[in-house]
Design a protein around this nucleic acid. Sequence first.
RNA 1: GCCGGCGUAGCUCAGUCGGUAGAGCAGGGCUUUCGUAAAGCUCAGGUCGCGGGUUCGAGUCCCAUCGCCGGCUCCA
Length: 695
Amino acid sequence: MPKITLPDGAVLSFDEPITVADVAASIGPRLAKATLGARVNGELRDAGATIAQDATVELVTARDKAGRSSADALYLIRHSCAHVMAEAIQRLFPGVQLVYGPPVDNGFYYDLAVPPERPLAAGDFSAIEQEMAAIIAADRPFTRYELPGAAGLTKLAQEGSKYKIDNAERAIAGGSQTLSWYATGAPGSGFEDLCQGPHVPSTGRIGAFKVMSIAASYWHGDAASDSLTRVYGTAWADKEQLDAHLRQLEEAKLRDHRVLGKQLHLFVLDDLVGPGLVLWPPHGAILRRELEEFIRAELTKQGYQQVYTPHIGKLDLYRTSGHFPYYQDSQYPPMILHEQLQALATEGASCAELANRLHSGAVEGYLLKPMNCPHHIRIYASQQRSYRDLPVRLAEFGTVYRWEQSGEINGMVRVRGFTQDDAHLFCREDQAAAEMRGCLKLVRHIFDTLGMADFRVRVGLRNPDSSKYVGVPEDWDRAEAVCREGAASLGRPFTEEPGEAAFYGPKIDFIVRDVIGREWQLGTIQVDYNLPERFDLGYIGADNQWHRPVMIHRAPFGAFERFVGVLIEHFSGSFPTWLAPEQVRVMPISEKTTEYGARVLERLAAMGARAQVDDSNNRIQAKVRAAAEARVPYMLVVGPRDEEAETVSVRARGIRSDLGAIPLAAFLGSLAEEIRTRGAVTVLGHHFPGAGAEA
RNA sequence: GCCGGCGUAGCUCAGUCGGUAGAGCAGGGCUUUCGUAAAGCUCAGGUCGCGGGUUCGAGUCCCAUCGCCGGCUCCA
């Protein structure tokens, strides 16, 4: 008869099979009331689940003593809330069919097949929420029942939902003997849904919820399949948690790089220029230039050679590399030569015919470059290479253009024209691992300098079932081994993801999240045996034989556009002094010290600092506020007292008070040091060691 | 590309039932000369994304188009 082991090691013995709820009740009535479910032998189960054998049981309650909710508690609440929302929507919109409704980060969604004559819209949310509130108030139990696979399928066939039949068939194919349903209330009396569970004991246990947004999805994620309506919601143990979550979303919105970028004039996206084409106004250009100079210094240290290449190249170049055929849909259309276009017109050739001839090479044209590697490869090939010359490391801040789908374009982080901090390393095979380490060192240096610790590492491998990859398996195996070893050498967790490789080789990617939680790939390092083959690259070895080099593609920032976008959010627009577009603002108290202010500005300019003077006739309060809103790291207030003593009164970003006056020369010296060391030494640390930035 | 939503002053937004387009901030001018997160007064600023349609009359209703937002799909 079951012996139950609790997390604290205590063992409870029972005479007969019991439920999770019984276990809770045997400990205490309050715990019984608070129990939503349990981990039984590590598996998340309903409170009503039966335990017949010895087991470890970890009860899941809505909240711990500190009022926090475990991931399991939130999972149960959200999964259950998805059912409640589906029931509410089906009550209000009878033709709606259920597809799939899982919990996700911060909430849940339900995919629905909605009749086209009455689409759901955000305007329906309040009605849906009211209906949900009524279902929750009724506090009906979630009741699980199971049917054998065949009987279950018959039941679903009668109900006629092809989506649920498909879900069931896939569950059976996945090895399930039975199918389970969850009824809200008594089975047969109302809403029920084919579902694995688990759920909270009853609808009343869903503490607080909100319907958030509506979006489209595809059935099975397949664009050729049915288009579904996905309704997103969030659910929490109580209203305080929900409110905290909503507040956090509001704050994230203010940190969004698109909002800050406009406010701080960091970049411009102009309708007339085109979607996804970034204009860099002066302040944004400063950010980019500082990053360029930062990395350029590292390139020199690591033995790179800088090159320049044009923005376009002949189609034949990209036929050879494979980019033109592989990625035709995501390139700007080719530029076709006048004579050829005229000849085609005279002939009355169709678009399809034109595409054919472009593909075959019968019609030549030029392409806006989608990648820098082919150009760099031709530089490598432009002279004879000996094994003594390798590695050859060619670097370029190379601008590329890709026709991203219109729905993908997003601020600075997904654009159609962008500049990579690109380089291609051509090396002997025995050098590849060392070159990989050099690249990783560079990536790490960048992330360390900028204080970006919150990134994940992904090793992108080929998917053996896919035909999208070029080259032979042996080369892939070796390249993948180099990537794995490189990632392992970082000393932090990484994931291996088949199917994430480039078509020509595996890669290591560095991925960060934006303020809304979306992931973006920044830096990337790719090992490539294939392009050297396609371009027939070689070098003369010590044995006087012709050998094939290995290529490493790498871009530690990825692209300046995306990196700056992510950086804006990372710093909430408050950039460290070396990056800040405006580093110092001089603020005379009144016109009496305008002239001294101008002198201070001159000194700042002479040392190369980016500074401005606010000589408006505003009061100092307004000047402080304006400078704070512009996220200027240092404000120098100068009044008659300062002029007399040749001092400046310092106020630093993030500190809501005057730090006091220091000699102008002393400030200039430490500011220069702060900029030179990229923040390793700071003005604050030097002159005001006690002052800490407030949140 | 797909589904849904949204485009009004430089920015953030209001605009009722279809009846002469509004606010705050920012900007210009004047007054104030001030010691650390908004001084006061005043002026200017608009083809309501663009194009059609319905109507006596359209910011408002309809169609189309461009752009943006959310998600899906894609991402060399």
